[in-house]
Design a protein around this nucleic acid. Structure first.
Lengths: 362, 362
DNA sequence: ATTGACAAAGAAAACGTTTTCCTATATAAT
DNA sequence: ATTATATAGGAAAACGTTTTCTTTGTCAAT
C-alpha cells in the first residue's frame, strides 16, 4: 500500500540504486535529466522514505534519547524546548524518558535506547552517572545539560551560577545596599557552591566585607526561606537586602519580612534566582536572575550533534549566562506595579556588572 | 562488534529462526532444552535485539508520537508523565514534538513520524486538527488528550470540568455561602462552557437562584481576575465568595479583595481551578480543583495502545474527574497557615457533592 | 503397514533501504 | 589507435530481524 523506493524506481524506469542516489544527494554522479525525472516521480507518487529501513542499513536513526530525572522539575520544559528546536532544524527527533530518579529505570531506559540504535543521548539534570559509566552502558555520544552535581564533567552544559549571583548582588549594591544577606541552598549542589562564590566575589568587588552572620542556608523550599529570613531579621544589625538562591526561598523571605511588619522593597530588598513563572505575578513581583534553560537546551543539542558527526571527540564543560530580571522586590523598577513581565529591563540590565556600575545607580 | 541474532544462533548451534522464535515467545513449538540453551547463550553473549531491524520486518516500532502544541503549558509535564509511565510499562517509547501552535511544524512533524513508522500518535492540548484530518495525514491510530476545543471529538480524553466546577461551588455552598460569584474564562473554550454549566447546576441543586450580575469573564490571566473582581466587589450586594475558573485569575481576585481592604477568606472566600504549583504557596494558599493531568495522560496512552492492538476501533470521549484541594482561601482549612500541601484534605473532600452535603458543613 | 497429525527445526524469502561492485559508454591523454 | 579516466547507471549484496515454506522425525490412529 505505501509506496516504496522500488515503486519509484519502476515508475521512473531506473534502478533502486539510482533512486536512492538521487534522494540522498549521494556523491555518485547522476545525469541531471535522470535526477529530475526521479524527483518528479517520487513527488507524484507521494513517496516517503522509510526511516526504519534506512536506519537498518546506515546505522543512523536520526533519533536521540533525552533522559530526564524528574519530568516535573520546572526547568525541564524550557530545556527540552531548546533541545527540540535545534534537533528539529537538523531533522533529528527526540525520545524522552522520565527516570524519576530511579537508577533501575534509567538503566533500562538506556538499554532500550541502545536497542533502538539511537544516535546519542542527552541527560537533563542527571547526576547519577559519570561520563565513563554512561559510555559503558551505551556506546553513543552523550551530553549532560543542567547537571546538578559535578557540573564540570566533560560534555556538560550548565548555568553560570557564579555570574548570575554576581548579577544579583551587583544590582543590590548598585541600589546602595551594603548589608546584603544571602540565603543559600543545601550543601553539595554545584549551584550552592557557585552562587556563594559569586556573592562573595561581587561583595569583594565593591569592597564590602564578607560577614558570615549574613549567610544562611535553606533547602530550596518556601518554608526554609521564611525561617532563615526570620533569623536574619532578628539580628541586631539587620540586613537591608536579602538575596535568596532561588525564587521559592525568596518568596519565603518576602513573607517573613511582611510578618515582621516590614515592607518589600521599601525596608528590605529581595532578589531571587531562577525566574520561575510565579516570580512575575506574586506580590511584590520578584526581581530575579534567569536560568538560561532554553539556551542550555539548544547548546546541548548542538554539542551532541557535533559529537555524533564526529566533529569533536569531547565537549569542554560550558557555562551559560542568565540575565537579571528587574521587578518590584528590589525597589529599582519604575512605574506602577504590573502583572506583565518586564522584558525591556532584562535586556537593559543584563550586562550590568560592577565594572560598568561602580557607583550606586541613584 | 555488537552481537547479532546470527551470532547467537551460531554459538548455540541452531538456526536464526529458532533463536528468533525463542526470543519472541513465538507460538511455534520449541523443545524446552533448545529454549534454555538459546536463552543461556543470548544472555552470555549479551545479545540485544535490534529494534530497527525488527521494526522493518514487523512494521511495528513500539514507538508513539506525542504532539504538544505548547511545551511550556503547565499541564504538559504531568500529562506526559502519565503517558510515559504507561508506555514504559508496555515497552513503548515516545517521541515528543513541540509544534508551538504552528500548523506547518505540526504537519511536518506528522510527516516525520510517518517516515519513522511510529505506531500511533497522542495529541496533547491540540485543537488544530479534527480526527478525520489527522487520519488523512497519518494512517495510524491517534488519541487527543486535554483537547481544549471540541473536546467531545471521538478518541479524546478530557477533564470533567462540569464536575470540577460543581465540586468548587458545592464546597462554597457547604460553607454557607449563597452569593457566589463566578469569573469565567474566554468564550469558545470547552472549559469555559463546562465550568459555567457546573456552576449553574450546583447552584440549582442548592436552590440558589442564578444571578447574571455575579458572573464575569476573564482571559485566564492574573490581571483579568483582578479587574473583574474589582467590578464584582463594587456591586451594592457584593458576593461573599468568588469562584475563578483558574488559579491565575483566583490570584488576581485575592489581590483585588486585599486592595479593597477586605480579607480572604474572612470577608470573601476564593476558590480557583487547576491546582497550579503556586496555589499551594501564595498567601493565602488557594483552595482549588485539580486538573487530573497524570490520569488523563495515562488513560490516553492506554487507549492508544488499545487502538494499536486493534482491541477497539474508536474510543468514546472520556471525562476524567479532578479533586477538590482545600487550602486557606475559602476558610474551611483547619490549623495554622502552612506551606505544605494538604494531601489529606484532598482525599477527604473529593467526593463531597450536594447529595452528600445538603447542608452547610458547620 | 500406511496414513495423518504433530513437534521441532532449518532454509530461504522478505522487509526497504544503501552501498559495493561491476559494466557501458564517452571523452581525454598518450 | 590504444589506453586511461570520468560519467552514468545497473545488479546484487548487505543490514538484522521475522516469517513462510519445507523437511525430518515421532507417535497415534487406522
Amino acid at each position: 500500500m505505501p509506496v516504496s523506493l522500488v515503486d519509484v524506481a519502476k515508475a521512473a524506469g531506473v534502478s533502486n540504486a539510482t533512486v536512492s542516489r538521487v534522494l540522498t544527494n549521494s556523491s555518485h554522479p547522476i545525469a541531471e535529466e535522470t535526477r529530475r525525472k526521479v524527483l518528479a516521480v517520487a513527488e507524484e507518487l507521494g513517496y516517503r522514505p522509510n526511516l526504519i529501513a534506512r536506519g537498518l542499513r546506515t546505522e543512523q536513526t536520526y533519533t536521540v534519547g533525552v533522559i530526564v530525572e524528574n519530568i516535573l522539575s520546572p526547568f525541564i520544559p524550557p530545556i527540552t524546548r531548546g533541545i527540540h528546536d535545534y534537533l528539529r532544524q537538523h531533522n533529528y527527533s527526540a525520545i524522552i524518558i522520565n527516570s524519576d530518579w530511579d537508577p533501575i529505570v534509567e538503566t533500562e531506559a538506556l538499554e532500550n535506547l541502545a536497542r533502538r540504535h539511537i544516535d546519542g543521548v542527552i541527560f537533563v539534570e542527571s547526576y547519577t552517572r559519570s561520563s565513563d559509566e554512561v559510555s559503558k552502558l551505551i556506546p553513543k555520544p552523550h551530553v549532560f545539560v543542567h547537571r546538578l552535581f559535578n557540573a564540570l564533567n566533560p560534555n556538560s552544559v550548565v548555568p553560570d551560577d557564579l555570574y548570575g549571583a554576581r548579577l544579583a548582588v551587583n544590582h543590590l549594591a548598585c541600589l546602595g545596599h551594603r548589608r546584603i544577606a544571602f540565603i543559600n541552598g543545601p550543601e553539595g549542589w554545584d549551584a550552592t557552591v557557585n552562587r556563594l562564590a559569586g556573592y562573595r566575589e561581587e561583595l569583594a568587588a565593591w569592597d564590602i566585607p564578607f560577614d558570615p552572620a549574613l549567610v544562611g542556608r535553606g533547602d530550596w523550599e518556601v518554608q526554609s526561606g521564611f525561617t532563615v529570613a526570620q533569623q536574619l531579621l532578628a539580628q541586631p544589625a539587620r540586613p537591608t537586602a536579602i538575596f535568596a538562591a532561588n525564587d521559592l526561598m525568596a518568596l519565603g523571605v518576602i513573607y517573613a519580612v511582611q510578618d515582621a511588619g516590614l515592607r518589600v522593597p521599601d525596608d528590605i530588598a529581595v532578589v531571587g534566582y531562577d525566574d520561575r513563572d510565579f516570580a512575575g505575578f506574586v506580590r511584590p513581583a520578584i526581581t530575579t536572575v534567569t536560568m538560561p534553560c532554553e539556551a542550555m537546551g539548544r547548546l546541548s543539542a548542538e554539542f551532541l550533534l557535533r559529537l555524533i558527526d564526529q566533529e569533536a571527540d569531547v565537549i569542554e564543560p560550558t557555562l551559560v549566562q542568565g540575565q537579571l530580571v528587574i521587578r518590584q522586590s528590589c525597589g529599582a523598577a519604575t512605574g506602577e506595579w504590573q502583572f506583565e513581565r518586564e522584558q525591556g529591563s532584562v535586556i537593559r540590565q543584563q550586562r550590568l556588572l560592577h565594572t560598568e556600575c561602580r557607583e550606586p545607580l541613584t
